[in-house]
Amino acid sequence: MSKPVPQPPKNLRNTYIAPRPPYLRPIIICGAIMALSSRREVISPGSPLYDYALSHLSATGLKYASWVQSGLFYFLFGAHAIETAVFTKRLAKHGVQVSSLSWWQWMATCFVGGKYCFVHFDREVGKFD
């Protein structure tokens, strides 16, 4: 058996390709979780989450809920920032220049969607592994 011949990288020529299903939904969910983790009002008195779930917790439980929210915030924003930095190499390899609008669109999508943007991008450039 012969090895498959590696294909040259597909050149996107500064083109942004918006995510479509099945990648769109997880990217939107990631963005929503990131937005909710950044707002302390989500677990404060008066919010639906507090009124229906957290109001039944003790003071210690509320403190843990606050830690969970902070942990989600730092984990998601930190991990997505690192993923976005790594993603710049993929964009350069596939013909998306830093000075282009499409570069910024890809960066925003990657920051919000993280891993799911990588999968979407790989499908668009023809890398299915």
Rank of each mutant, 00 (worst) to 15 (best):
L91R: 10
F87W: 03
L76E: 11
K10M: 12
R20E: 15
A59Q: 02
Q105L: 14
L24G: 00
L76I: 11
S44W: 14
S2L: 14
F121I: 02
R123V: 13
T84Y: 00
D122C: 08
K115V: 15
S100K: 08
S66H: 02
F77V: 06
N11F: 03
L54Y: 09
K10T: 15
R13F: 14
S100Y: 11
L36R: 06
R40T: 12
Q97W: 10
N14P: 14
Y116N: 00
L24A: 04
F75K: 02
Y50K: 05
D129Y: 13
V42I: 09
A108N: 00
Y52G: 00
I17H: 01
I33P: 05
S99V: 10
F73I: 13
Q69M: 12
C110L: 04
P6K: 15
E124D: 13
G31P: 08
V119H: 00
P9A: 08
E41G: 12
M1W: 12
S102A: 15
S66F: 02
N11M: 02
A85D: 13
S38Y: 12
L12S: 14
G78C: 12
G61I: 07
Y50F: 06
P22S: 06
W67P: 11
A59H: 09
A79D: 11
R20K: 08
S100W: 02
F118G: 04
F111W: 06
K127A: 04
G71F: 09
Y74M: 08
R39T: 14
K63M: 14
D122M: 10
A35I: 03
W67M: 15
A85T: 03
K63A: 15
S102P: 14
G71C: 02
R25L: 15
G95D: 04
P45G: 06
S38G: 07
Y23H: 12
T88I: 10
S2A: 14
S66M: 08
F111G: 00
H80I: 09
V119E: 14
